[in-house]
């Protein structure tokens, strides 16, 4: 079985069980809706203030729902005693990591798409002026977040205080991703070309590459019982 095929099987397994149970996605959609209420109440009804804070709020929404979603990434394996199954899987364990990252990426992009629509509807902002540019920025930011988040989720899966420890580990490390994504999103929403935020996109791409590489090289050490 090739490396790509083994990654694909992990991804397929996660997507299939999510499609059938809809446990995480349903809760996340509802969570995203509640976040919009919170943002609205926290900032008041002032349209200008909301628009000025939009890129930050958008990524705050992505990150908070991502924290909740990623925290459950290895829940099925842990609760159903399938950890040994992962351990027994033949070949390079990093294929499992890549499959999990891909699964989390798909999940997060789903929720982010819903959040974008909700923002556009409830806050009456035009997010669709440059869909391609926005997709590039969101894709780069989310990939890094999923890469380092999946690594930390696997680490904290066996720790007693995992609900606390997971965000405590992830939030400080992902600061460069958040800064880059917010700044680039702001520029794109203002109608600037991607070239104007080339340095931020480069930083996001570098962060993605670093997190993915470390994840691939070290996942073996995390998976050991």
């Amino acid at each position: 079985m090739t490396y790509a095929r083994r990654s694909w099987i992990v991804l397929w397994k996660d997507l299939l069980s999510e499609r059938r149970s809809k446990e995480t996605l349903n809760a996340l959609f509802f969570f995203a809706l509640l976040l919009l209420f919170l943002f609205q109440f926290a900032l008041g009804a002032d349209r200008e203030r909301l628009t000025a804070a939009m890129p930050g709020l958008l990524w705050l929404g992505f990150i908070l729902s991502g924290l909740v979603g990623l925290g459950r990434a290895f829940l099925a394996e842990r609760e159903n005693d399938c950890w040994e199954g992962l351990l027994l899987a033949p070949g390079d364990k990093s294929a499992i990591y890549l499959g999990k990252v891909a699964g989390n990426l798909v999940l997060m992009l789903f929720v982010e798409a819903v959040l974008l629509v909700l923002f556009a509807v409830f806050f009456d902002v035009d997010l669709g002026a440059h869909p391609l540019r926005l997709t590039v920025v969101i894709g780069l930011g989310t990939l890094g977040f999923a890469a380092v988040g999946t690594l930390f989720a696997a680490m904290t899966a066996h720790v007693r205080a995992r609900e606390v420890l997971f965000p405590v580990l992830l939030l400080p490390v992902q600061v460069p991703l958040l800064l880059g994504a917010v700044e680039a999103t702001e520029a794109v929403l203002l109608g600037e070309p991607l070239g104007a935020v080339g340095h931020w996109l480069g930083l996001l791409a570098a962060a993605d590459a670093i997190y993915l590489t470390v994840g691939i090289l070290t996942f073996d050490a995390i998976l050991e019982a």
Partner: peptide, 25 residues
């Protein structure tokens, strides 16, 4: 020891990213 080693690597590689992003920000 294993988990801390992984985090120790991620943390150190994150320092230049933090440095550049905050500087530009």
């Amino acid at each position: 020891a294993r988990f801390a080693a992984v985090l120790g690597i991620v943390a150190a590689l994150d320092i230049p990213l933090v440095h550049f992003s905050v500087y530009w920000w």
